[in-house]
Simulated assay, not measured.
Amino acid sequence: MRRLLIVLILLPFFTTILLHASINIINVYYNGTVEAELSNVTQFILIGSNITDLRVIGSQYNLSNNIIYLKNTGNIVYISYKAVLPKGIIQVNENGNFTINVFLPINASMNYIYPQPSSFIVINGLYNITFTNANKVTILYSFYSIFSQRQSENNVELYLIGGLIGSDSVLASLIFLLLRRSKVASKINKGEEEENIDLISNVLDERDTIVLEAIKMGTSTLADIVRQTGLPKSTAYRRVKKLVKLGYIEEIREEGKVRYVVKKKED
């Protein structure tokens, strides 16, 4: 009886600790709105640029080099602001693990997602892509300009995903990624002629950007680039050569091995 009484007395205390430890959520909206709910976090790296309407509730803070340094880390801290995000790119790079929710409109086409999301659902007309225990997230997306066949394909994907949400959100996420990858693969297989035309251009297309982002994230060998992007080896190789030719990356040969790194800008 005495042990039970002690457990009942301490239960609220431990519950409060667990709840506070688990509240580390970041919401990133495609329009530049960012919201965060944090606990036991000493610093928060702002996402995007040209920050406006910054609000920090629950802690005193200092802002330096796009990083918020929090003083009252034992409290639950709420952060919200508006930012300018790069067109077609949402990138999060934090210290520590967070639950990161990215919200995109349902007419968005996801061309690249890293890492694999833990769930993918639709809320109020927005894709909610969730990553758990993550600190680095990269999503490349674009919007459809023609709503005919592509829009109907979106609807098919939406219905498939919606039917699976109630039973297994992870399975829905996997199906979405497989469908998206099949679309990318169909574009890649249009023919060698289109590939050659893309390689002649000095403008980076969707596949160039995917390869470049993979290299920026530390993927350095051709085999790793193929594994990371899901592109065929021949396509990835041609894209790497194009990026080298245009000066975005450089090829480094060491001890018979070849690796690729982002080329440093000359002062």
Rank of each mutant, 00 (worst) to 15 (best):
M1R: 10
L5E: 14
L11M: 15
L11A: 14
F13H: 10
T16E: 08
S22R: 10
N27Y: 10
V28W: 05
V34N: 03
N40M: 09
V41F: 03
Q43W: 04
F44A: 00
I51A: 00
I51S: 01
S64K: 15
N65C: 00
Y69N: 06
Y69F: 08
T73E: 05
I76W: 03
V77W: 02
V77I: 12
Y78K: 06
I79N: 01
S80T: 04
A83D: 03
L85R: 04
I89W: 07
N97G: 11
N101I: 01
N101W: 08
N101G: 01
N111G: 11
N111L: 10
Y114Q: 09
Q116L: 02
S118D: 15
S119P: 12
F120N: 02
I123D: 10
G125M: 01
Y127K: 06
N128K: 10
I129R: 00
N133D: 10
A134F: 06
A134E: 05
N135H: 15
F143A: 01
Y144H: 13
F147V: 00
Q149W: 13
Q149G: 11
S152F: 11
S152T: 13
S152M: 08
Y159H: 14
I161R: 13
G162V: 00
G166P: 14
S167F: 14
L177S: 05
L179M: 08
L179P: 11
A185E: 09
S186R: 12
N189K: 12
N196D: 13
N196W: 10
D198Q: 11
L199W: 09
I200E: 11
I200F: 05
V203D: 12
R207D: 15
T209C: 00
E213K: 13
I215T: 08
T221M: 01
V226Y: 03
Q228M: 10
T235I: 07
Y237I: 07
R239I: 11
R239D: 14
V240G: 10
K241Y: 05
K245W: 14
L246E: 14
G247S: 11
E250V: 02
I252R: 06
R253D: 13
K257L: 02
K257I: 03
Y260H: 04
Y260D: 05
V261C: 03
K263V: 01
E266F: 14
D267H: 13
D267Y: 15
